[in-house]
Amino acid sequence: MQTRTFHKQYSCSLDASRMVAADIVPFWQQLNIDVCIAGQMELCLVELVNNVFEHAYGNTEGAAFDITSQLSIEVSDYGSPMPPDILKNLPTADFIEPLTDDPSTWLQSKRGLKIILQLTDSMEYISDKSKNTFKLLKKTS
Rank of each mutant, 00 (worst) to 15 (best):
M1W: 13
Q2P: 15
R4E: 14
R4Q: 15
K8C: 04
Y10V: 04
Y10M: 06
Y10D: 07
S11T: 02
C12Y: 04
C12D: 03
S13C: 05
S13A: 09
L14K: 15
D15S: 12
A16Q: 06
A16V: 08
S17Y: 12
R18N: 09
V20E: 03
V20T: 06
D23V: 01
I24M: 02
V25S: 02
P26W: 01
W28M: 08
L31D: 05
L31F: 04
I33N: 05
D34Y: 05
C36A: 11
C36Y: 12
C36I: 13
A38I: 01
M41F: 03
C44Y: 00
V46H: 01
E47G: 01
L48V: 07
V49A: 06
V49T: 06
N51E: 07
N51Y: 08
E54L: 11
H55S: 06
A56Q: 12
G58D: 14
N59H: 15
N59F: 15
T60A: 14
E61W: 03
G62Q: 07
A64Q: 09
A64E: 04
F65W: 04
F65R: 02
D66E: 11
D66G: 02
I67S: 05
T68S: 05
T68D: 01
T68G: 00
S69L: 00
L71I: 00
E74L: 12
S76D: 03
G79D: 10
S80Y: 13
P81D: 11
M82N: 07
P84K: 10
D85A: 08
D85M: 09
I86W: 11
N89L: 08
N89K: 07
N89V: 01
T92H: 10
A93Q: 13
A93I: 12
D94R: 14
D94A: 13
D94L: 13
F95G: 05
I96A: 12
E97N: 15
P98V: 03
P98L: 05
L99G: 02
L99M: 12
T100R: 15
T100W: 14
D102Y: 11
P103A: 01
S104M: 03
S104N: 02
W106L: 04
L107P: 00
Q108C: 02
Q108R: 07
S109E: 00
K110Q: 02
K110A: 03
K110I: 00
R111D: 00
K114V: 02
I115K: 06
Q118F: 06
Q118W: 02
Q118A: 13
Q118T: 10
D121G: 14
D121L: 06
S122V: 02
S122Y: 13
M123Q: 07
D128H: 13
K129F: 10
K129S: 12
K131P: 08
K131M: 14
K131R: 15
N132R: 11
T133M: 10
F134A: 04
F134G: 04
L137D: 13
L137Y: 13
K138T: 09
K139L: 09
K139Q: 10
K139W: 09
